[in-house]
């Protein structure tokens, strides 16, 4: 199974939402990181065949979406960001409906619906109307519908947005169980999700991939550029003005700062092992939404 993006672009007027993206996906979990407006959702919609690229090709095992036709979609499971449900359907009806859209026969649809609702812990409320569900329950139902046809390509756009920490952990566990032998592309701007789930990190900015690396080696590029130092509160304010401060932690009267900088911000600053969040902030700077941190 190989999914290739070849010179993929999407242009709206003069602006490129996705600009000449090339990638080669084989089974594994891909964490697609990027700030809002980086082009993640546009890219995912194009992969899912619901948005036509301005140029370039998407190929599954060498064949384009157009060549594969309906066949392409049998490989696909998609959970869009903030997608709506039919509030007057029960979870079971919604799953059976989606199974019909995905071309599953009736018997298989019933079996898969039962299995997946059990897996996402919605069996007890399967007969309740979706309008009575919480956000987390809807997200779990979202991933259950994406899994109905046991797709070999699973596209999840911001699947953990809006979930509380407990729901996020539950979601990550579900995803880990599903990810075997599949190409899973998970878009998020929550760095910790990628840290936990992804094998490969894709970082997107202004419609282009900045990084396509294995998780283990992805931070190598900023090794020696992350520093920690302990300063008093007044000095901490000064440092925040002049450096990219990743973290700020109060320890009694002092403040421990984590700074990304090419060189040591001062003599006694200690170099520390960079993590994914440092990398993210290195590329996206102060605009990063710190409130997303757990």
């Amino acid at each position: 199974m190989q999914l290739q993006l070849q010179n993929l672009s999407k242009q709206y007027g003069a602006k490129y939402a996705v600009n000449d993206v090339n990638a080669n996906f084989v089974p594994g979990v891909y964490g697609l990181l990027g700030a809002n407006g980086a082009g993640k959702t546009t890219l995912m919609r194009m992969i899912c065949g619901v948005l036509k690229p301005t140029s370039g090709d998407i190929r599954l095992n060498g064949k384009t979406i157009d060549e594969l036709g309906e066949q392409y979609y049998t490989h696909l499971g998609y959970m869009p960001q903030d997608f709506g449900f039919y509030p007057d359907f029960t979870a079971q009806e919604f799953m059976l409906y989606m199974a019909a859209v995905k071309g599953l026969d009736k018997r298989k649809a019933i079996t898969r619906t039962k299995e997946l609702l059990y897996m996402v812990n919605l069996s007890d409320v399967a007969d309740k109307k979706i309008k009575s569900y919480s956000g987390g329950m809807k997200q779990r139902l979202g991933i259950a519908q994406a899994e109905l046809n046991n797709p070999s390509i699973l596209i999840l756009d911001e699947p953990t947005a809006g979930l509380d920490p407990k729901e996020r952990v539950r979601f990550r566990n579900i995803l880990s169980n599903l990810a075997k032998e599949k190409i899973v592309i998970l878009s998020t701007h929550i760095v910790s999700d990628v840290s936990y789930i992804a094998d490969t990190v894709l970082m997107m900015k202004q419609g282009q991939f900045l990084i396509q690396e294995k998780k283990q080696t992805v931070t190598a590029g900023i090794k020696g550029k992350v520093w920690e130092l302990l300063v008093n509160e007044n000095t901490a304010v000064e440092y925040s003005r002049h450096f990219s401060v990743v973290n700020l932690h109060h320890e009694n009267d002092m403040v421990r700062l984590r700074i990304i900088n090419e060189s040591a911000p001062r003599e006694n600053a200690q170099p520390v092992e960079p993590n994914l969040e440092d990398l993210f902030l290195f590329y996206f700077g102060e605009t990063t939404e710190k409130q997303e941190e757990i």
Binding site: C48, V50, Y73, T74, Y78, F83, G84, V101, K102
Partner: peptide, 19 residues
């Protein structure tokens, strides 16, 4: 389109045909 269910049904096998 309004509810945002278009993406999920259009990428189903029959989303652009039998549906």
């Amino acid at each position: 389109y309004q509810a945002g269910t278009d993406a999920v049904i259009l990428c189903g096998k029959y989303g652009k045909t039998k549906l």
